[in-house]
């Protein structure tokens, strides 16, 4: 059993990027991802690609980890690339049976591939250098303007962080129940689709019931420690924008500007 590599799983290191304010990181990554759709030149993308590699190195991540994180979207990537490649009308440069590759197709496919790849590289950097808590904290801060419309931002953020806390617990429990039911003769990965679907009931039902039970006990434990939904709480963790954050904000703006301008030079 190997450790599962989640999408850019957080790895605490002394990297510079780990020290950045999570709010800054979330906003920067979000804006550069949106920005990707406005870049129109290959050289612009190459510049961004170099920048993302620079960030990955700065995050002290292994390149192999980055590619492993691509795995879940690989199918999507291939599918769109091939679709664009073969089914874009335009000037035919190569034909293979009924499939025709057009120059417009090559152009579009390259762009889409670049965008998707960059998108996952940047999010990888974010999730690899930011812990779950920081992510929720940052997320809470970013959505905090919604408070004006009475959206319970703090409770939502707390909910997300509790959900994340329970992921390993539920995972462990799922493994245990799966093994127990396997011992009672269930074969989870054999048989027809219907049989397989049915074999999941003895796994899913106990898992759900236990989760409800846990949630119930957790709610009581939280209440016992003075928690009331919607009541103002002090914040234990501190977020502070430092010089290094300003530097990265500046760097991102610079790169974004450069990647738009690059062709005109």
């Amino acid at each position: 059993m190997r450790k599962r590599s989640f999408f850019g799983q957080y790895n605490f290191s002394d990297s510079l990027l780990c020290k950045l304010d999570p709010r800054v990181k979330i906003v920067l990554v979000f804006s550069i991802v949106v920005f990707l759709f406005f870049v129109k030149t290959i050289s612009g993308y190459i510049l961004l690609l170099l920048f993302s590699i620079f960030l990955i190195l700065l995050a002290k991540s292994k390149i192999s980890d980055v590619f492993r994180s691509l795995a879940p979207i690989l199918f999507l990537l291939l599918f769109t690339v091939l679709f664009q490649l073969f089914f874009t009308p335009g000037k035919v440069v190569y034909s293979f049976f009924f499939l025709k590759v057009t120059s417009e197709g090559i152009y579009l496919a390259t762009y889409i591939a670049m965008r998707l790849m960059l998108l996952s590289f940047f999010t990888f950097v974010l999730t690899a250098t930011t812990s779950n808590i920081e992510l929720t904290d940052g997320f809470e801060a970013v959505i905090s303007p919604l408070k004006i419309v009475r959206f319970p931002t703090e409770d939502v953020a707390l909910m997300i962080s509790i959900a994340m806390r329970f992921v390993p617990v539920l995972f462990e429990e799922a493994t245990r129940i799966m093994k127990a039911q396997t011992s009672r003769g269930v074969l989870f990965n054999k048989g027809s689709l219907m049989q397989r679907a049915r074999s999941f009931l003895p796994l899913l039902l106990p898992l759900l019931l236990n989760a409800f039970n846990r949630a119930d006990q957790l709610a009581i434990a939280m209440e016992a420690r003075g928690f009331v939904v919607g009541k103002a709480r002090t914040k234990y963790r501190e977020m502070q924008i430092k010089k290094i954050d300003l530097f990265f904000i500046f760097l991102f703006i610079l790169i974004m500007a450069a990647s738009i301008m690059v062709k005109r030079i």
Binding site: R165, Q217, G226, R233
Partner: peptide
């Protein structure tokens, strides 16, 4: 079933925040 925080420190802090 009584932990709230993702880290131990975080969990101990929960009641104090409340």
């Amino acid at each position: 079933n009584q932990f709230v925080g993702t880290t131990v420190e975080e969990d101990i802090a929960f009641g104090l925040e409340n």
